[in-house]
Computed example of a mutant assay.
Amino acid sequence: MIKAVIFDLDGVIVSTDQLHYEAWKHVADQEDIYFDEKINHRLRGVSRMDSLNIMLEKADKTYSESEKEKLAKTKNDYYVDLLKQLSPNDMLPHVYDVLLNLKEQGIKIAIGSSSRNAKTILKYLGISCLFDAIADGTDIENSKPAPDVFLRAAEKLGVSYSSCAVIEDATVGIEAAKKAGMLAIAVFDAKKSEQADHKLDDIRDLLSIV
């Protein structure tokens, strides 16, 4: 029996892909590194430093660890500034109604995101108070496809791993959910994953599963 649903944030609750792209493009242009939306797509669900390393594959020079840290900070500072544009109107369709419906059913809900900016994003969306727990990049050492963030979310909820469902838009997130022993529900790009237990065309269909 499903007692809790853990939501990825970027791409499930809200789409920040364009903002990430603009921030990484800002850094790439400063460093004269080729970067396009195809490369940006590879960064979905990936930690900040791993994303930076993917971006640097096109670089003409080798960067030291301290230089990489500086570039990552530049990207994040620019991204955080872009986040100020977000409002409740930026939530993906039907998400708010689904969250309310789950709460009315007594099902706990949590965020399980690798982003270190999850709490900031939720604040701008105006929905922080809806979630029973938030597990993000500040809580873990290993990003997806490691299961850490979902395991941490379940622990914060006080619910067994096997009683949790995860809803994800990235294949690495589905892999992480399965490693955590949780029901893996895919939307958008994650529907390509053969590991997904359910594949949704509409997030409202989640209500018929849990």
Rank of each mutant, 00 (worst) to 15 (best):
A118E: 12
L99T: 03
S47D: 03
F131H: 09
I134Y: 03
S163Q: 12
S115Q: 05
K156H: 05
D81E: 15
M55E: 08
A72R: 00
D32A: 13
S162P: 02
R116P: 11
D29N: 12
A23E: 11
L102K: 09
V46C: 06
E31D: 03
S160G: 06
I121Y: 02
I209E: 07
H41T: 11
V166H: 07
P93M: 14
A177C: 10
L151S: 01
L82Y: 12
Y96F: 13
G173T: 04
L200S: 06
A196G: 14
V187I: 13
A146Q: 14
D189R: 09
N89L: 05
A59Y: 14
S64E: 05
W24S: 14
V149Q: 01
A184R: 00
I33K: 01
H198K: 11
Q18P: 05
L125P: 14
A146P: 10
A165R: 05
A72G: 03
F35P: 01
I111G: 03
D32I: 06
I185H: 04
K73C: 04
A184V: 01
C129E: 12
K58S: 12
K84A: 15
T16H: 04
L157Q: 03
L71H: 00
M55S: 11
S115W: 02
H198S: 05
Y63L: 08
S113F: 02
D205N: 13
R116K: 15
